[in-house]
């Protein structure tokens, strides 16, 4: 028993480590979600300054891109429904143009033009809706009008929709886009070692001292970690999951990722994680690939130009691209792992 104790002490290695003093972690409630900012290698004053500027920027963008509160996007939506030409805010024009492009590349699976449908499902509120789900008639009435990003024409500062049913909900791209813009700004100011995690969608800058920032991906079912990876500066890690926003009604779960083809919550996928330097692309692609599902995700990923994807389908099978697989350490070994290239 004595030897046992010695061996234990040696093997377990008393590696109790306390968080280093250079690390700052703060939480903000902005963008309708909890935003966690982790900074490395700065003093308290610098950390507070960076935090304040992130908060200001996120608040501004949230106001601009919000799908159901009055703001820049609210104004755009009311003007889109008139089908006449109008001028829009430049910060929005850029994002809408990018959404249009990505929607096209995703074969319309990422479709921010279905704002009305999302609202119909009750996801245009901060609280989770309580149900019941909308009626089939209400859903098909909206679907029959085929709102699509292709209906929107952007011409300089001008915008116009040829379809009055188009209402924008940028929820599947705005966070990723906002993270891109904010980290761009911070990098030019030389504030370069941090993670901004906005409700599970995150972007990293720099490193944690002499090691890379290490990001974990949540397991969609057991509250734990599925896998972890070391990131490079400027990378975004975005996850879309059916557990994020949902409501249960009469024993059935309805989540917030609506398939624009059926008008109902997309089935067959539990979560998708996309890693890319372009946060807006990663954000939009995670939603599109979620809807594409196990059968079609490779094609859509190829069209959208993302190469680092992990998808967990409803049967627990994990599909991963070789580019991402090489970087992942699985903490929960998946029951079935399929490595499939998109090229």
């Amino acid at each position: 028993m004595r030897y046992l104790l010695l061996i234990l002490l040696a093997s377990q290695g008393l590696t109790a480590c306390s968080p280093a003093p250079q690390e700052h972690r703060d939480t903000l409630y902005v963008f309708g979600t909890l935003v966690e900012v982790t900074q490395w290698g700065v003093n308290d004053t610098e950390a507070a300054k960076t935090l304040k500027s992130i908060e200001t920027d996120l608040n501004f963008m949230h106001e601009a891109y919000h799908a159901w509160k009055p703001g820049s996007l609210g104004r755009v939506n009311s003007l889109l429904s008139t089908t006449s030409r109008f001028t829009a805010n430049t910060s929005l024009l850029d994002l809408i143009a990018e959404s249009k492009d990505l929607s096209h590349k995703s074969d319309g699976l990422f479709n921010p033009a279905i704002g009305k449908l999302i609202g119909l499902w009750g996801f245009h509120q901060d609280e989770m809706p309580l149900g019941p789900p909308p009626t089939l008639i209400a859903i098909s009435t909206l679907l029959d009008k085929h709102p699509s990003m292709a209906d929107i024409r952007i011409d300089g500062f001008y915008m116009q929709s040829r379809n009055p049913a188009v209402q924008l909900d940028l929820g599947a791209i705005a966070k990723g886009y906002a993270l891109d813009k904010i980290t761009e700004g911070l990098a030019t100011e030389g504030r370069s070692n941090l993670i901004i995690n906005a409700g599970g969608n995150l972007k990293v800058l720099g490193t944690h001292g002499d090691r890379p920032w290490r990001i974990a991906i949540r397991h969609p079912r057991n509250n734990g970690v599925l896998a972890a990876l070391d990131t490079q500066s400027g990378e975004a890690v975005v996850t879309s999951g059916d557990y994020e926003r949902f409501f249960d009604y009469r024993g059935k779960r309805y989540h917030h990722i609506i398939d624009p083809r059926s008008g109902y919550p997309s089935t067959g996928t539990m979560s998708v994680t996309v890693v890319d330097k372009n946060g807006a692309l990663a954000d939009a692609a995670s939603t599109a690939l979620f809807i594409a599902g196990a059968k079609d995700w490779q094609r859509i990923a190829r069209q959208m130009g993302v190469t680092q994807v992990l998808l967990m389908s409803s049967d627990g099978t994990v599909y991963v691209t070789p580019a991402l697989k090489d970087r992942l350490t699985f903490t929960t070994p998946p029951a079935r792992l399929i490595v499939s290239a998109t090229e």
Binding site: L34, V204, W213, A216, V225, A228
Partner: peptide
């Protein structure tokens, strides 16, 4: 998490294996 009250809870091991979580 208790999102309505804007409180989240995350458990970390003694050898913290990651810096941030994508969910």
């Amino acid at each position: 998490a208790c999102l309505p009250n804007r409180v989240t809870l995350e458990i970390k091991g003694s050898t913290s294996s990651y810096d941030s979580l994508s969910y």
